[in-house]
């Protein structure tokens, strides 16, 4: 069953067509890769799903319900969390508090109780619950030792994990990973692949990831969609996509095609 369904999504920036009549269907519980050369429109698709961009045409449904009517801050209430290409952690908050913000939409208390947060037992209880939940996720990702650290003082790989944790802690049904392997070495990328798979299995979530690193995509994705110049040029299993002539052309260029001919 498809959890996320895009039909004919077109995004224009002035005269530029960033995404052109894209159809995309993501199966529930799958790890789905969205790949393509630079400027193919992958991140634009993510930004449509996060509701930062409005498509000129097309529809997007999540669990059968329209997604395009949602505000950016409503998306997480639908069960969609995300990470960012260039880590977007809150630098003024500790790792733990970053994860508390990750659960922001799950809190029940409002402004007036917030002004008495350290006195009201109900608020203290709720804070403690959420802290325990955050710690559980940090432990799962092996970064509990950094809970009181501030993001700027952590190595890049750890920062990426913190961002993962922040997205996971909201218990999303779908998690969007924007270039999770960017800036990582081979070993880190390998660990990351493991992590994404374990994460999906433990948290019963669906993963849609945008990625440049082919080894990561080929090793963990069950389904791959390939884009070039805003269009979908291939769709299928890693094996199908790898042997698709259009994909080879997009990645290796015309000369390869000429050499094959």
């Amino acid at each position: 069953m498809a959890i996320l369904e895009l039909k004919g999504v077109t995004v224009r920036f002035g005269g530029l067509v960033a995404v052109n009549a894209l159809d995309l269907s993501v199966e529930q519980g799958s790890i789905h890769g969205l790949i393509g050369p630079n400027g193919a429109g992958k991140s634009t698709v993510f930004n449509v799903l996060s509701r930062y961009y409005d498509p000129a045409e097309g529809t997007a449904t999540f669990e059968g319900k329209d997604l395009l009517g949602a505000q950016p801050h409503d998306v997480i209430n639908r069960g969609i969390a995300r990470t960012f290409q260039n880590v977007e952690l809150f630098k003024g908050l500790s790792v733990m508090d970053n994860l508390m913000v990750g659960q922001h939409h799950n809190f029940r208390y409002g402004l007036l109780p917030a002004l008495l947060s350290r006195i009201l037992p109900s608020v203290k209880r709720e804070e403690a619950e959420k802290r325990a939940k955050a710690l559980e996720v940090l432990e799962f990702l092996g970064i509990a030792a950094y809970k009181d650290a501030f993001p700027a003082f952590l190595p890049y790989g750890i920062q990426k994990r913190v961002e993962f944790a922040r997205a996971l802690v909201s218990q999303p049904k779908l998690i969007l990973l924007d270039e999770p392997a960017a800036g990582m070495n081979e070993q880190e990328t390998h660990d990351l692949a493991q992590l994404i798979r374990i994460m999906r299995d433990k948290y019963k979530t669906t993963v849609l990831l945008v990625e440049h690193d082919m080894s990561l995509v080929m090793s963990i994705c069950e389904h791959i969609t390939v884009m070039e110049f805003g269009r979908k040029i291939a769709d299928g299993t890693p094996a199908e996509v790898q042997n698709n002539p259009a994909v080879i052309k997009a990645y290796l260029g015309e000369e390869e095609e000429a050499a094959n001919a």
Partner: peptide, 12 residues
């Protein structure tokens, strides 16, 4: 710190 990330966390 980040309006974009804050919105993604459900902060209006």
């Amino acid at each position: 710190d980040s309006e974009v990330a804050a919105q993604a966390m459900g902060i209006s």
